[in-house]
């Protein structure tokens, strides 16, 4: 108990602010934040500088104007957006009823559903596409005489490759599952459903009027993650040779380096705005409750 004896301490005057530690921590924290800021901001600023500075022409925003007139831009962007919307629709239609049913009446299936929905995380997209392309190759060999043959051909229509929607649904499953699971836990779906059933609501009514409105934030979250995934997905589209937006950026980079960087900066900005909109919408819903 000698630890307490005052003579072991420097005779600090009363004016001294509390021990020196906090000051050291503040310096340390400032240094970390500064280094992080440099590392994360420099590429963004430099990319922007790269797009606006042309040797001999000074500073112009031409590259951004050229995005829209570039060959194939509109088609690629529309294709990616269309794929995104289709993927969101399919993935929500598949997961929401399944997750609701499992949560409400067959909790035993929940671990299975969780594993099934998490599994795609373990399988890198490149290996997934290796398998898919093999299936698409083999398909015609074995199924040539059956109606499946037509199906295999039609899902690879370059104007709207359904096969990409199918694979993107699988890739989106883990994120959608987690977003919806969090949403369902937050609203205590069971009580809601019991209350609504008790009041005589039918199942479709219940789904559309009770569950979906209460899950708005989670559904928006899941949709955003899915959209971001589809708009950024390069591996599968390129290896199956479809001209989606990221593949288009890659293709034009050879001839129009500035434009491709401009698109990259642009797409980051869009993601940022979407995320901000989403988080503020989520906050509004939370405070509205």
């Amino acid at each position: 108990m000698a630890a307490l004896s005052p003579q072991t301490l420097p005779a600090a005057t009363k004016a001294t602010p509390a021990p020196g530690r906090p000051h050291r921590i503040r310096v340390w924290r400032g240094a970390i934040l500064l280094v992080a800021a440099v590392y994360f901001l420099v590429p963004l600023i430099a990319s922007f500088a790269f797009t606006v500075k042309t040797p001999g022409k000074g500073v112009t925003l031409d590259a951004y104007g050229q995005i829209f007139s570039a060959e194939g831009f509109g088609r690629a962007l529309l294709l990616s957006l269309g794929l995104g919307v289709a993927t969101i629709a399919v993935v929500l239609l598949l997961t929401l009823p399944a997750m609701l049913a499992v949560r409400l009446s067959v909790p035993r299936l929940r671990p299975i559903l969780e594993v099934v929905c998490t599994l795609p995380l373990v399988v890198p997209p490149i290996t997934f596409v290796a398998g898919i392309s093999k299936v698409l190759q083999w398909g015609p060999d074995y199924l040539a005489s059956t109606p499946f043959y037509q199906t295999i051909i039609s899902i690879q229509n370059p104007d709207f490759p359904v096969v990409l929607v199918l694979t993107y649904v699988v890739l989106a499953l883990p994120f959608v599952y987690r977003a919806l699971d969090a949403g369902l836990s937050a609203i205590d779906a069971r009580t809601l459903v019991e209350a609504a059933r008790n009041l005589g609501a039918s199942w479709p009514h219940l789904l559309l009027r009770v569950i979906v409105p209460n899950l708005r934030a989670a559904l928006a979250n899941a949709s955003f993650l899915t959209l971001a995934l589809v708009l950024g997905e390069f591996t599968i589209a390129r290896l199956l040779s479809f001209q989606t937006f990221p593949v288009w950026i890659y293709t034009i980079s050879g001839s129009q380096a500035q434009v491709s960087v401009a698109v990259s900066v642009f797409s980051l900005l869009i993601t940022w705005l979407l995320l901000l909109a989403l988080s503020s919408a989520g906050a509004r819903q939370r405070s509205g409750k």
């Binding site: 609701l100 049913a101 099934v116 599994l119 290796a130 699988v170």
Partner: peptide, 30 residues
């Protein structure tokens, strides 16, 4: 709820079937 329990697992079937086909088949092929 329990009245519906017997068939409510059917809601999970499309999802499981989808994953089995689109995800499972390529894995088997690999």
């Amino acid at each position: 709820l329990s009245k519906n329990r017997s068939k409510s697992w059917l809601a999970a079937v499309p999802l499981l079937a989808f994953v089995a086909l689109v995800f499972g088949v390529p894995l088997v092929v690999i």
